[in-house]
Design a protein around this nucleic acid. Structure first.
Length: 349
DNA sequence: AACTCGGGGAA
DNA sequence: TTCCCAGAGTT
């Protein structure tokens, strides 16, 4: 095992090349004793799960503007949080965010736990996030392995086992690499290195601070490692989305079930999404449609949707859903799929 | 262990 | 198109 990787090399690189982020205390401020807010670290880490920094930035700012403290967030309605989360995806994160905030107050006196095992019990906090919060917010020496660090370590040690099978091996190596000094900056340095230098495609080995220590670079395999198991192909499902507009400009919307796809989110009524869906509109009306359809890709299937539109009278009584006035709801509070549907449905009005 | 769960940017 | 992104929860 290559234990020659000196933390100081990486930390020196980080001191000069750290990315700036709204939730981060940079290396200079950190050295002068400024500590990051655990609330900010936690919120950013939840948002960053499988989500890019570029995407998260504006959502993070929106959230801390709306809920400046953990206490404010804990007192929010779930519908407010899901509305603000709309478009970010993986909506269980939004529901767990509120659950977690409430638990911090009911179980931990409103103060974030600092140790890994306690953090791991919180909803939405898994092995990565528990380690990241403990290391970054509290400067604890914890093992942190995200997608960036997986790639960096895979190349440093030229691991030939494909991901995700090599996950345990990588975690054990990471355990040996984590330093006693500045563990929080160390993990952020590894992630920044993976994001800006040790990139998935065309890694910039010539400017890498670990060039001399990296086995893959030495053997010219940096652009091949890590190997990955093939992902299975996504099937295609079809369905209908129904946009109902009442004469007073109100729209028919439904709160989706708390579990499952787009769980807890507000959206237009839909049919089932399957290979051969039935066209089952939520109300009887004169339905308009077009030949064009929406294509939208979820994590594990493609969706092809036909959008239908209807105007209905004031006395319309749908079996499900509620009418919300146009001024009372915000298109941006809907998941992306439903925003797309609205844009197509708008043409039918 | 395998499956579920979003959406966007880059190549 | 495919891959990847500061992964976690459920079955």
């Amino acid at each position: 095992m290559n234990s020659k990787v000196k933390p100081s090399i990486l930390l020196n690189w980080y001191d000069k090349n750290a990315r700036e982020m709204p939730w981060r205390i940079g290396p200079l401020d950190r050295t002068s004793g400024i500590r990051p807010s655990p609330y900010h670290v936690w919120l950013s880490e939840i948002m960053l799960q499988q989500t890019t920094v570029a995407t998260v930035r504006s959502y993070f700012i929106k959230f801390i503007r709306k809920w400046p403290t953990l206490e404010k967030l804990a007192q929010a309605e779930e519908s407010e949080i899901t509305a603000a989360w709309a478009g970010l995806g993986y909506y269980a994160r939004a529901r767990n965010l509120l659950k977690c905030a409430k638990i911090i107050f009911s179980e931990y006196g409103g103060k974030f736990p600092s140790d890994y095992k306690t953090l791991l019990k919180l909803p939405g906090v898994g092995p990565y996030t528990a380690g990241a919060i403990s290391a970054i917010a509290f400067d604890r020496n914890e093992v942190v392995v995200d997608g960036n660090i997986e790639r960096v370590i895979s190349r440093l040690f030229e691991i030939e086992t494909p991901l995700p099978n090599s996950k345990d091996e990588i975690t054990e190596i990471a355990r040996g690499l984590t330093p006693e000094v500045r563990p929080g900056d160390y993990v952020q340095a590894m992630m920044d290195l993976g994001a800006t230098v040790c990139t998935p495609v065309a890694p910039k080995c010539l400017v890498c601070p670990l060039e001399q220590e990296c086995l893959a670079n030495k053997n010219g395999s940096a652009n091949l490692v890590p190997f990955k198991l093939k992902k299975k192909k996504k099937p295609t499902r079809r369905g209908f989305i129904y946009i109902v507009k009442r004469v007073d400009q109100a729209y028919l919307l439904e709160r989706r079930p708390a579990k499952g796809l787009l769980g807890g989110m507000l959206g237009w009524p839909t049919s089932e999404w399957c290979a051969d869906p039935k066209d089952k509109p939520p109300v009887d009306a004169n339905w308009q449609t077009t030949n064009s359809q929406i294509r939208h890709t979820f994590t594990h299937f493609h969706l092809e949707v036909i959008v239908k539109f209807a105007n209905v009278p004031l006395n319309c009584q749908p079996k499900q859903g509620v009418f919300l006035e146009e001024n009372d709801f915000d298109l941006t509070s809907l998941p992306t799929l439903f925003q797309k549907a609205y844009k197509l449905g708008y043409l039918l009005k």
